[in-house]
């Protein structure tokens, strides 16, 4: 299997949302994109799926298996979207047509885009529903989305992606709308199925810990830029970008109580805003003059890459 490389600055005409994002997903690997609102994390995965808002324009390249997504013919694009990549959205209720039965939703893609027979698609649909842990799949096929809980519906969504075993799974905050216990179960499911089938995954979330638990590599985004790229296993001990560290420190702890949280001052910036220098400089405790004037370069460090002028300075005692 070949690599997927993409480089996607988006210019929507109103402003640039993504600024020179580089992302590589190896076949079968899982990468996490983590950021706050406005960081451009969702737009990044949407660009991969060629699902952009009307009027958006891109420069740079998104390629899949060596093919440029932007150059794909409509037939090729349909094949790409219907059989090679799959997407799981945050709100399954918004993504699944509420007036059609679950079974209908499941077989639709297989029948219209992949040319399966209805009977075969239905049979396979029952298999995948069982596989995502839905009891009594035959009955569920005849249920309407409104009759299922959010967690069950998200399982249906996951099941739909398994029907055609895509090579790449795009998951955009798939568990944000779910309860914690349901989130845990759904993430375990996604993680298991992905590993069993050797699917690659791009997992978008605002939750660093969640991403670290199911991904190989973490990409931290801020204001439309990837500011740090680091193996998930190194995240807690060896992340170096001030923003990554600040995010890790800002969450209250489950196993103890500190009197004050280390909050990040100011507001998160969106990629739309014009900045000179480093986008994080205004909130960064380590910012020096150059941070406010020059856009930081991407610096290769031992753990991966970071976008910081002070990449080689020892900002923390232990790193």
């Amino acid at each position: 299997m070949e690599d997927l490389t993409l480089d996607v600055p988006v210019d929507s005409g109103h402003g640039r949302i993504l600024h020179g994002v580089d992302l590589t997903v190896e076949a079968g690997s899982a990468i996490g994109i983590v950021g706050e609102s406005g960081s451009g994390k969702s737009m990044t995965v949407r660009t991969v799926a060629a699902l952009l808002p009307p009027g958006a324009s891109t420069s740079g390249r998104v390629s899949f298996d060596g093919d440029q997504v932007a150059d794909m013919s409509s037939d090729r694009l349909r094949r790409y979207r219907s059989s090679q990549v799959a997407m799981i959205f945050q709100d399954p209720r918004a993504a699944i047509n509420p007036v059609r039965k679950v079974g209908n939703f499941l077989v639709e893609n297989a029948v219209t885009n992949l040319g399966w027979s209805r009977a075969r698609a239905r049979e396979k649909a029952i298999d995948v529903l069982r596989e995502v842990g839905i009891a009594d799949p035959e009955r569920r096929l005849n249920a309407f989305p409104s009759e299922l809980s959010g967690g069950l519906l998200q399982r249906v969504m996951i099941a739909s992606t398994l029907l055609y075993e895509p090579e790449l799974l795009l998951a955009d905050e798939p568990t944000t709308a779910l309860d914690v216990t349901t989130q845990s179960a759904v993430m375990a499911l996604i993680d298991r199925l992905r590993r069993e089938r050797g699917m690659a995954m791009v997992f978008v979330t605002h939750d660093l810990e969640l991403a670290a638990a199911v991904c190989d590599t973490i990409h931290v985004m801020y204001a439309g830029r990837i500011v740090e790229k680091i193996p998930a296993s190194e995240l807690h001990e060896r992340s170096r970008h001030p923003y990554t560290r600040a995010l890790l420190d800002a969450r209250p702890r489950l196993d103890g109580r500190e009197s004050r949280l280390r909050a990040i001052p100011g507001q998160p910036l969106s990629g739309l805003e014009d900045v000179t220098g480093c986008a994080f400089a205004a909130r960064c405790p380590f910012a020096v003059d150059i941070c406010r004037t020059d856009e930081p370069p991407v610096v290769a460090v031992e753990t991966g890459e970071i976008r910081c002028h002070r990449a080689h300075d020892r900002l923390w005692g232990d790193s």
């Binding site: 706050e36 909050a263 507001q267």
Partner: peptide
């Protein structure tokens, strides 16, 4: 957002 949440909790 996480960074804002910490501000409000403080």
């Amino acid at each position: 957002d996480v960074s804002i949440q910490a501000q409000i909790l403080n």
